[in-house]
Simulated assay, not measured.
Amino acid sequence: MSARSRSSARWLSVAIGMVLVIGAVTGTADAAGETYDQYSLMSSRSAGQLVDTAGAPASQWAWNPTGAGRSEIRWDTPANWNNPATGVEHFVHDGDWVYLDGYEDKGTGAYNPQRVTSEQVGDGDCAHLVSLPSHGGQQHYVRWTVPTAAYCLIADGTITTAAGVVHFRHRQIWRPATTCATRFLGTVACIEQQETWWDDNGHPMRMQIDRTQKLGRGKGPGLQIHATVGEGKPIDWTADLRYTWTW
Rank of each mutant, 00 (worst) to 15 (best):
E89Y: 08
G33I: 04
E34P: 01
P65S: 02
S134F: 05
D240C: 00
Q139C: 08
T187V: 06
C126V: 10
S13Q: 04
T117D: 11
V166R: 05
G122K: 00
W61T: 07
Q139L: 15
W144L: 07
D37R: 03
S131W: 03
Y243F: 09
D240F: 11
G164L: 04
D200A: 13
W197F: 15
A62V: 12
E34R: 12
V25D: 11
A58Y: 10
H203K: 04
G102H: 02
P133W: 10
G87P: 01
G222T: 07
L223M: 01
M18W: 07
G222E: 09
V188R: 15
C180M: 15
M205W: 04
H90K: 14
M18R: 15
T178N: 14
H90T: 09
R4I: 08
Y36R: 01
I159N: 00
G122I: 08
K219I: 05
G216Q: 04
S44Q: 14
P113W: 06
T66W: 05
Q224P: 02
M18F: 06
V116A: 11
D96N: 12
I22L: 15
A149V: 06
Q114Y: 04
K106C: 00
F168M: 06
T160I: 07
I16G: 07
S40H: 04
E72L: 05
W197S: 03
T161G: 00
D105C: 06
W144C: 00
W247Q: 13
I22D: 08
A29S: 14
V121M: 08
T160W: 02
T145N: 09
T161E: 05
E104K: 08
Y36S: 00
R10N: 11
A32R: 15
I159F: 14
H203F: 08
H203Y: 02
W245F: 07
Y103Q: 03
S71T: 06
Y36W: 05
V165D: 08
Q194R: 15
H167Y: 09
I209C: 02
D123R: 01
G102E: 03
R169V: 00
G216E: 08
G33R: 03
T108C: 09
P204E: 13
N83W: 08
E119Q: 14
Q208K: 13
P84Q: 07
P113V: 05
V88E: 06
G222N: 12
R206C: 00
T148S: 09
L20W: 12
T117H: 03
S44C: 03
V14D: 14
A62K: 10
